[in-house]
Design a binder for these strands. Sequence first.
DNA 1: GGGTATTTGTCCGTATGTATT
DNA 2: AAATACATACGGACAAATACC
Lengths: 265, 265
Amino acid sequence: MPQPMYHQIADDLRWQIEQGTLGPGQQLPTELELREKYEASRNTIRDAVKRLIALGLVETRPGQGTFVTQKIDPFVTTLTGERSGPGGGEQAAYLSEVSEGHRKPDVSTPRVEIQVPMPEIALRLRIAPGTQVVSRHQQRFIDETPWSLQTSYYPMDFVVSGRAPRLLMAEDIAEGTVQYLKENMGLEQVGYRDWITARAPDSNEQGFFRISHDATMFEIFRTGFDQHGTPMRVTVTVFPADRNQFIVNVGDVPGPQYSQPENEN
Amino acid sequence: MPQPMYHQIADDLRWQIEQGTLGPGQQLPTELELREKYEASRNTIRDAVKRLIALGLVETRPGQGTFVTQKIDPFVTTLTGERSGPGGGEQAAYLSEVSEGHRKPDVSTPRVEIQVPMPEIALRLRIAPGTQVVSRHQQRFIDETPWSLQTSYYPMDFVVSGRAPRLLMAEDIAEGTVQYLKENMGLEQVGYRDWITARAPDSNEQGFFRISHDATMFEIFRTGFDQHGTPMRVTVTVFPADRNQFIVNVGDVPGPQYSQPENEN
DNA sequence: GGGTATTTGTCCGTATGTATT
DNA sequence: AAATACATACGGACAAATACC
């Protein structure tokens, strides 16, 4: 037995899916039918289906059946925002970029907290571990589907000094926090560094994005620096990898019209 | 029964691992021992362990046992190479960057092919689908462990015109292909665009990187543009997400000394 | 709303194969 | 060769979710 039976079954089904015999959204035969077709037990069939789930090719719906997953039209984020320059805020860029693609963005009102952040955040903000910070958390949607979770961290000093009180308000800062901090505190974001990782989702993210526990998340830490080279904020954004892609432009590059091949699976 | 038993068992073990009760590399109790401890059947224990495997927290070795996975010291690649500028080649930057981190890089001799590339490549190179290109494929290692797979695609015209014959030689181009093309063809890479995605590994990658089928890969398409805004090459690099991270710098940012928190899980 | 059939989810027990020590 | 430990495969039972009448 060179290959386990459930591998062979999974590979056969995978072939049919990638061939197009089983199209997106289409229902697979039920476990009972597959059991007869492949002359295997139901548990073996289920092991094969689990492989396909892990590959993201199918999804199961209790009481209904197993279905070929619909390909999602991914959203592309440009990390090097040439348009707005190095001082560009995330949200303004986000809203404009999505609108250009004829898709409807939406952002929840922020949840504002004062907390002691994770050591990773403290290190990036260059503050002592255990120090309190202001955090602003938002959920983002595109076409009503959850797209990303974002939390920005600012030094406590910004608000205790009374110079940026609106950071504590649980409402959107329309002009963008980057612009707001520049006007009120003279702090200009002259550059930022994005640190890109991939990891598994936690249970919160699984619930919000309605993804399985073995999905993949992009996690991007953006540290913004002011004119003195001091970190002025850290923004952590978590994206499900199945619906998000990123672009980095360096030097002279032509417009995006030739850069993104249309989806063809 | 609010939570399935195998979820609870998995969460309990996960807690012990993240707490440190079970350290990296340490062996978990055997399935038989866990069966007694949690008063569940062996199959239920196995379902729990499968969850931990999917999360990348443990790995199983037949005949030995189940072990907490060793955290790999991730390698960080800067996509916006300030040092070498927008014309910087991948390989030169790669070798220098790794050496700085006191790690030993290694690159295989290239495998050169003439082929019809995938439509994704043709679109980016802005050539007609079905057109032939020159591809140069290399394997990269760090400290003897496989780290990334890279394939560069160049228009066929570069070699049939006789202007860049060394592209066809299955040997390293020491000064870098970017520099070589500039000197021989007057083609200068004035910028590039990176397009970042995540996906599942194919069987080749599973074998080379020795990873499981449900691991995650970063895939980065780098399109290099010449002074006329024409794509002059496309480089596709595939990185296992468990051992690779990326940094993007925009504007004025201080050196990297404060940007990468040390690992602490 | 209720009841029933269908389909997947969870859990058990058992047997046998394969890899490692 | 023997013991140990994980991998595969079978069969059965009941629960939970969904769809349909």
